[in-house]
Design a protein around this nucleic acid. Structure first.
Length: 334
DNA sequence: AACGTTGTCAACCGCTCCAAG
DNA sequence: TCTTGGAGCGGTTGACAACGT
């Protein structure tokens, strides 16, 4: 199913990813974000090109991705979206939370083949699907489209309306079924910019049931200790760290470009506190386990809320910014 | 059981886009 | 305005699994 591992002329691995590589990449990105894909692999301790890392993260490792076959609803949605957007897989993927453009693309090609083969006139899939809304396609797109514009179906004279209606009615409406943070969760702090992190603020409770589960947590258990820490911070990060008013300023830009995942909590002993009882709760014992892993792995805390769970010995009341200075000092060692 | 064919999907490749200098 | 480098996108490939003969 996957390509055989091999080494290219630059000594970089190609082909199937090993579990160890996955763990290294996942751990690094969750901790530091993807500040530079090209530089990232060497700091993460992965002998891969940045492009390969990016692809692996986006298509496989990124939390929240759905696995398994498409549901009927997703299939119908895909058909409609393809009619609207054509082969703009990334656009389609944006409307199908948890599905990657690669996955959708593969599914579509498979589905199209099936349809072509069966030549079922009653099939709901229109194999001549062509973008109806040319405003989303530039000239090149039109040229690249496998079907000429003369073949545009007239079955749906107002596809905008149909698809929009579908999006509104369909249960997969991302805005309803998936909170805004779902898509951006791992790149943005789930706290509104107007809610600065401070010793008095309490984080909002979020439903992480589909993002964090036990297998996800378990994946940290085999982390390697060979991961490096960046020798320098992104310029924006450095600038923010020097900002003594950090606590009072909005934090989204900082986190989205650097930390990626803030692991906010509203309970002192919980890493993440789900909002409903049916969701998986990561208990304090789990956190303890994570601390064992991260304590030696990163040599620093990763819970950045007001409680600073399981911090190494530090004085009570230490300003929030001090923890970042702590990070900077750590980086300087490398 | 052995072999060939088809299906599936992770991963690669090459191109374009875009922001920064 | 031009150049450069990183990110992203879409098409294609390779390898394994499943299925058929």
């Amino acid at each position: 199913m996957v390509r055989s591992p091999s080494i290219d002329k630059n000594g970089l691995r190609k082909g199937a990813w090993s579990e160890e590589e996955d763990n290294k990449l996942r751990a690094y990105i969750l901790r530091y974000g993807h500040w530079n894909w090209r530089q990232l692999p060497k700091f993460a301790g992965v002998a891969r090109c940045g492009k390969s890392c990016r692809l692996r993260w986006l298509n496989y490792l990124k939390p929240g991705l759905k696995r398994g076959p498409f549901t009927k609803e997703e299939e119908e949605m895909l058909i409609k979206l393809h009619e609207k957007f054509g082969n703009k897989w990334s656009l389609i993927a944006a409307k199908l939370p948890g599905r990657t453009d690669n996955e959708i693309k593969n599914y579509w090609h498979t589905h199209k083949k099936k349809c072509k083969k069966s030549e079922d006139p009653n099939s709901t899939v229109k194999t001549n699907a062509t973008p109806q809304n040319t405003h989303v396609m530039d000239q090149k797109d039109k040229q690249d489209s496998s079907i000429s514009l003369s073949e545009v179906s007239t079955d749906y004279p107002n596809m905008d309306l149909i698809v929009d209606t579908c999006l509104q009615e369909n249960s997969l409406n991302s805005e309803e079924s998936f909170p805004n943070f779902y898509e951006s969760f791992w790149t943005e702090i789930p706290v509104s910019p107007s809610t600065p992190i401070s010793s008095t603020s309490s984080a909002t409770s979020y439903n992480f049931s589909s993002v964090i589960d036990e297998s996800f947590v378990k994946s940290f258990e085999s982390l390697s200790t060979e991961v490096q820490v960046p020798s320098m911070l992104p310029s924006t990060t450095a600038a923010r760290i020097e900002d003594s008013n950090f606590q009072e300023s909005s934090n989204d830009a900082f986190f989205s470009s650097f930390w990626t995942e803030p692991f906010l909590t509203n309970e002192p002993n919980d890493l993440i506190s789900p909002s409903t009882s049916s969701t998986t709760t990561i208990t304090s014992s789990t956190v303890t386990n994570l601390d064992e892993v991260f304590g030696s792995f990163w040599n620093e805390p990763f819970v950045l809320d007001n409680h600073h769970h399981q911090l190494p010995p530090m004085d009570e009341g230490v300003p929030f910014t001090s923890y970042f200075y702590h990070d900077v000092d750590l980086f300087k060692q490398f």
